[in-house]
Nucleic acid binder design. Structure first.
Lengths: 128, 128
DNA sequence: ATTCTTATTGTGATATAATCTCATTAAGGA
DNA sequence: TCCTTAATGAGATTATATCACAATAAGAAT
């Protein structure tokens, strides 16, 4: 199945790159809809999925929150602010061999890991 | 606000302890409903929340899946099977000082972390 | 440039997880 | 036994995400 180039797909990619800090699908939809109100939510979701598969953006699944989309595609870790729910990058080297520390896999085949730190972001720290 | 003892709350705690392996709220509801069909889903959710707050069970937020509830309350790590979505314990020491490896917190106050490994469980490995 | 095929879109329905509302029930103190 | 009010059960509602399908449009063929 040949993948066609569409302006909607470009708009989604542009929005992720522009919004940078781990926008949700809804935020991306609203960003695009400001200029192109006729775009559909389904189209945004679909293209976010496709762009993630193609490796042009990176889906960040957040425990206890909606998925977010990152313009940085190399593996890295994130912090989630427990007050506002926003997600930020963490300045910590990626540990590709973390799975090696597992003593007994009990027959599991390990394929990767994700780390989500929790904390309070500078903005929320002031408020509360 | 005084917390009252109810049979429903006991049923939820018992079900989590009985089901052990990180059941979802729905699974816990169904387990209880087998014997007590009149229990409401809302009640199960409410008591799961309260028991987590009280530290009697532990809520495990799973990226890309429903929350799960663990009868083991000490901090530890989990693997999620990418085929069946089930969650298992991982035999790896907890790293209480992982946050210390963060070079620059950018004003963040870190309060903890969770690690979710991904992989394929023994059961699914056979099937696929 | 025109036609044709079909991938993609926009709309709206549906699924899933979780929370909320509220009248009713029942826990537990008086 | 009565009284107060926390907790329940039923059902509505919210949030996130996916799906179905007729209409549109990308891009190859003519």
């Amino acid at each position: 199945m040949i993948r066609r180039k569409t302006i909607q797909c470009d708009l989604v990619l542009d929005a992720v790159n522009r919004l940078k800090d781990h926008a949700t699908a809804e935020e991306i939809y609203e960003e695009i809809a400001k200029e192109h109100p006729s775009i559909g939510r389904g189209t945004v979701y679909r293209n976010l999925g496709r762009l993630s598969e193609e490796g042009k953006i990176r889906k960040v699944e957040v425990p206890g929150g909606p998925d977010r989309y990152d313009h940085i595609c190399i593996e890295h870790y994130h912090v989630k602010c427990q007050k506002c729910g926003r997600v930020f990058d963490v300045d910590m080297p990626y540990m590709p061999n973390l799975e090696k520390n597992i003593k007994d896999g009990h027959g599991f085949v390990f394929t990767g890991h994700s780390i989500m730190f929790t904390g309070i972001c500078p903005g929320c720290r002031k408020k509360y």
